[in-house]
Amino acid sequence: MVNVLQQAQNNPMASTIILNETIPSKMALVPDFISSAVEKLRLLPVKENDIFNIKFCLHEAVVNAVKHGNKLNSALGVHVLIKIDKSQLTLEVSDQGEGFDYRVLPDPTTPENIMQHQGRGIYLIRKIMNDVKFFSKGRTIKMIKLFESKGGESEHKN
């Protein structure tokens, strides 16, 4: 496991699945699930700054899927896939809800929205990850984090 990232980097065709799990939509389960995913990432040669960013975005996406996607219906699952391809990490989080229009999300940093109590999760994900796409009418979010090349810690994009 330790050399998974290096192996993937050495072989451009390599694709390694780090986690492929479905959890019931219970908010209480989320922190332990995220922690166990982070523990798996810590076995890889991934920098601490990247781990923090990946953890943050995974957390926000899973919470969104449980709360807004599946509307806390524990009979519905949230599927999480984490894989490493080449020099990037891909996170996919899918819910079983009705989907949403991800094209019309307001900017939470404007003066009229900055006091709103919701609507920051996806904005943060888009700022932190290198690429974010939605599929299946918004039921699946796919996030890509490029690993920094040799050198210092990467910072968020803005």
């Binding site: 953890k55 919701q118 999760g121």
Partner: peptide, 16 residues
């Protein structure tokens, strides 16, 4: 060590 968007919202609520 970690704050999420709901934590930010709680701080904002108190600020308001």
């Amino acid at each position: 060590g970690f704050i999420d968007s709901s934590g930010i919202a709680t701080l904002l609520e108190m600020f308001q």
